[in-house]
Design a protein around this nucleic acid. Structure first.
Lengths: 138, 138
DNA sequence: ACACATAGTTTGAATATCAAACAATATATA
DNA sequence: TATATATTGTTTGATATTCAAACTATGTGT
């Protein structure tokens, strides 16, 4: 079989499995999908404006307004006035929000651990190196 | 840095990039997300019943009814009566539906090709083998 | 000042999804 | 056979998600 075809099939299946896994993890928690994604971005990249958060999430600012409203009501995040621009807010995770992020992060880590357990040290090294290469260049 | 952390970070980023890529590919076409996913399953696994399609997609049969209605209206798929069970339909891709599947498949292939171009033969082999291993066991 | 641009919110509409009720058919049991 | 139960797919009513466009408030450039 063509190596490209083989790579493709495995990629597609892997992506499918990761999607299912991600969704099931989110559904275990109290957050909706949009909120969980927002918390992930805020946890990963730190506090940011509505606009930047929208861009990071790939949705309109209108949608982000709703998402952040919900996060605020749930006590996961707060809007803080930006120093330099009075139109703008900086969205910051609260302690509860950060806990939710860390919890999600722990899930990811245990997923990575589960994968690593299947592989030899050499395979882990190669797999990580390849992913890093792809992430850098695509 | 801990190899697990490193693996995790690269996995998360890779998944994120694949999600964006997938979404942008779908939005280029005329199908909505649900329809595109349904076509992907039907193309990959062949004609199947509403129930099986629902299971493959991870949604209720009610949702699948709507999705398949739309595919039929768009000329991408047809419901055919099952021989053995008169309650049941077999959902089959039309030629147009199959073209849409092949087109999507081509996008995937070119994505895989793009990735392969970044890697040495050895890396391709290792990456594919690791993905296969993970897919089998997770 | 004045026009134009930008950040975020609101609004109205379209779409997606689910759970539950339902109709038609199949299967099992008495 | 007759009757109860299960299953397949559809419909319905409710809720959630998202977008585009209009809008408010503020910033920037001429």
């Amino acid at each position: 079989m063509d190596p490209i075809d083989e790579l493709n099939e495995n990629l597609v299946e892997f992506f499918d499995r990761m999607s299912s896994w991600e969704q099931s993890v989110i559904q275990q928690g109290k957050l909706n999908v949009a909120g969980a994604h927002a918390i992930e971005k805020l946890g990963q990249f730190g506090s940011m404006s509505m606009k930047d958060l929208s861009k990071a999430l790939g949705v309109t600012t209108g949608t982000t307004t709703i998402t952040v409203d919900r996060l605020e009501k749930g006590g996961y995040a707060v809007r803080e006035r930006a120093d330099n621009d009075r139109r703008s807010y900086i969205i910051r995770l609260t302690e509860k929000g950060n806990d939710a992020y860390l919890d999600h992060h722990r899930h990811h880590l245990s997923f990575a651990k589960e994968i690593a357990a299947l592989l030899t040290d050499e395979e882990i090294e190669c797999f990580t190196a390849v992913l890093e290469k792809i992430n850098k260049e695509i």
